[in-house]
Amino acid sequence: MISALWSAVFLVQLSCLQGAPIFGGSFNFSLDVQGYLHNFGYLKSNGSAPIIPSVNIFSEAIKTFQQFAHLPVTGQADEGTVKKMAAPRCGVSDAAVNGLQRFVLGGSKWPDKSLTWAVSSYTKQLNESVVDAQLTKAWKVWSDNTNLTFTKAAKGQTPNFDIFFAKGDHKDGFAFDGKGKVLAHAFYPRNGRIHFDEDEIWAPSGRPERDGTNLFQVAAHEFGHALGLDHSKVETALMAPFYRYSAKDDILTKDDISGIQTIYPLGKTADIRLAESSLD
């Protein structure tokens, strides 16, 4: 990733060339905007190396992010945009940015209806039984709306989904960034890896947001990716990329249900019909 300092200097140089500021307003810039746009799919990369964009391409990438994040579309990295980029979120790329659909499919699925999970490395912040209970609850969100079942793997059994908590570089090519920003990430079928950032403060469901990040809610989001869903453009959807605390257990919107039932149909067309006008 290009360093935040280099990126800031580069972007200021671009704004001078353009004759108008890329950064709008007067605020303390402390986020690598260009790196963020590369990391989450708004700017192209050559393998792991970001491609330096032109002023117009950079501005269009900001506009696309602003549209996806339901912000005023200015084409500038203004204060509201930078604050949104710094908000806690999922580490999976926003692959839906160039699509028109209300939910986006990851392009793969699990062939079996009975799937297993296990935690290979628990967080040190909560009892293992508490973690298991929250993960079981998160799997139930999806099993209640599909013909899939999810059970904890028996000791010695190889699970479909391997869940673990880790800090920083955990050898999957997508290092965590410390407390805040990226909370967790998951891989699409049939990879099965689901990772949570141990630098976050994790709380069981039912506790206020100020006490920590809701494990149940984040887990349910990542499980959606592990089942084949990409990020949703619907701001209220569970599969939207940004963390939004909810005290509810019933956290799927019609958009989430439409997406998962398109991948794993219940067998009746009526079960997956959801007109856009009826979506949350």
Rank of each mutant, 00 (worst) to 15 (best):
T64W: 01
Q66F: 01
F68M: 09
A69V: 13
H70N: 04
L71N: 02
P72Q: 02
P72E: 02
T74G: 01
G75E: 02
G75Y: 08
G75M: 10
Q76R: 12
A77V: 08
A77Y: 01
A77T: 02
D78C: 04
E79C: 05
G80D: 13
T81K: 03
P88W: 03
R89Q: 14
C90W: 00
V92W: 00
S93E: 11
A96D: 04
V97K: 10
G99D: 12
G99W: 09
L100I: 15
Q101W: 04
Q101E: 14
R102E: 07
F103R: 09
F103Y: 12
V104S: 09
V104G: 04
L105T: 13
G106K: 07
G106Y: 00
G107M: 11
S108Q: 07
S108I: 07
K109L: 08
D112V: 15
L115A: 03
L115F: 08
W117M: 06
A118E: 08
A118Y: 02
V119G: 01
V119R: 00
S120Q: 10
T123A: 01
K124Y: 00
Q125H: 03
Q125R: 05
L126G: 07
N127Q: 14
S129I: 15
S129M: 13
S129C: 10
V130T: 15
D132S: 09
D132R: 13
A133H: 14
A133W: 06
L135P: 01
T136P: 00
K137D: 11
A138F: 03
V141N: 00
W142C: 00
S143M: 04
N145E: 13
T146Q: 05
T146R: 05
N147S: 15
N147P: 05
N147F: 05
L148E: 02
T149S: 12
F150G: 02
T151W: 04
T151K: 15
K152V: 10
A153K: 12
K155N: 12
G156D: 08
P159D: 03
N160G: 08
N160H: 15
F164W: 11
A166H: 07
A166F: 05
K167Y: 05
D169R: 08
D169V: 07
K171P: 03
K171T: 11
G173R: 12
F174H: 14
A175Q: 10
F176P: 01
D177Y: 07
K179V: 08
V182D: 00
L183I: 12
L183G: 02
L183E: 00
A186M: 05
Y188G: 09
R190W: 09
R190Q: 14
N191F: 06
G192I: 14
R193K: 15
I194R: 10
I194G: 01
D197T: 09
E198A: 11
I201R: 01
